[in-house]
Design a protein around this nucleic acid. Sequence first.
DNA 1: GCACCAAACTAACAGTTGTTAGTTTAATAC
DNA 2: GTATTAAACTAACAACTGTTAGTTTGGTGC
Lengths: 189, 189
Amino acid sequence: MKLENRKEEIIKTAAKLFKEKGYSAVTMRDIATAVGMKAASLYNHISSKQELLKIIIISLAEAFTQGMQEIKTSNISTKQKLEAVVKLHVDITAQNTFGMASLNNDWMHLEGERDYYLSLRSGYEADFRSILLEGIQRKEIADSSVEVMLFSILSTLRSLYLWIPKKEDVTPEDLSKSLSNVLINGINK
Amino acid sequence: MKLENRKEEIIKTAAKLFKEKGYSAVTMRDIATAVGMKAASLYNHISSKQELLKIIIISLAEAFTQGMQEIKTSNISTKQKLEAVVKLHVDITAQNTFGMASLNNDWMHLEGERDYYLSLRSGYEADFRSILLEGIQRKEIADSSVEVMLFSILSTLRSLYLWIPKKEDVTPEDLSKSLSNVLINGINK
DNA sequence: GCACCAAACTAACAGTTGTTAGTTTAATAC
DNA sequence: GTATTAAACTAACAACTGTTAGTTTGGTGC
């Protein structure tokens, strides 16, 4: 239906602007101009600026949670799980680099769903930590600090939204592979 | 002098609030309340909200640039240079986690110094890239994609401001060491 | 006690914010 | 051709924004 298309367009435009300037610095008039209408007309499609942020962030957070569920319940090696997590991040981010900026930088401006978002995020990190811990116990990966490994990998994956747009010639498959390689094997010879 | 102390206090308070909500979402009244005065009184110490952002970001960016100059001109191995870069990030970030949030997330709101900031940033990344390239040529590190290595390491180092405050029990020395280890050797057994 | 002055205050400004109310437009259904 | 309706519009709102002007306060040096 047409209304849904227009709403989708508004959400994508909002996400793009949120990435460039952050949620608070983007006005409804900015979004309206970018989409070719007046600010008041936006309200024929959405209920509030908050709704835009909520849709952008929560849908992405739930995609990560769902992806992680599938990985952690699959019967594969620790390294294969890590590669799958990398691929999950690369794929979701490649599809929506704008929204990922809001997920990373504007979640604190969520008003009704901040706690829900934070619970998804905590759960995700806990699952990730479990994968690493299991890998150490099974002697599949090095016995370094779990927290440092988790932080290092997750920081890199969470920054993909900044990097993918600058390397449009690299396919998600190639990126996943070389990234997995560097994260798992480091840069050592 | 007293005036400088008060100004320092305002800058630190502003940086703290900027980290929590982002530059645009923080009002001069927020800063004033947090520091115990009225918004108009802030202008006895600073000239504008922009000045606060400029001081916070530019001083940090210049510290990184200066640190990088010393590392790249030093006569040490590639791995030692990488360890020095890690230490540079850990030390600066540990001293000013609030300001690092602005450096990472609010530089686009700089009005007079954005281009200057971006030039410092580009120079820093170019120097970092050169260190990695030299390491590959000298066969001191693996011959993986320089861009992927650079992105991965820099993403981790730039996210330190989020992580260090949550691990106050870890000393900068220990963190630098374990982080260098994970970044250089990966998580492989 | 008086002059000086940094640093706080009150009051106000012009512009911007998200949002609402009410109206017009243009396409569709019958 | 008339009724309906989604989606645009204009106009306006109350609240909030960064900042300025002018005033008061309280301590220092003489």
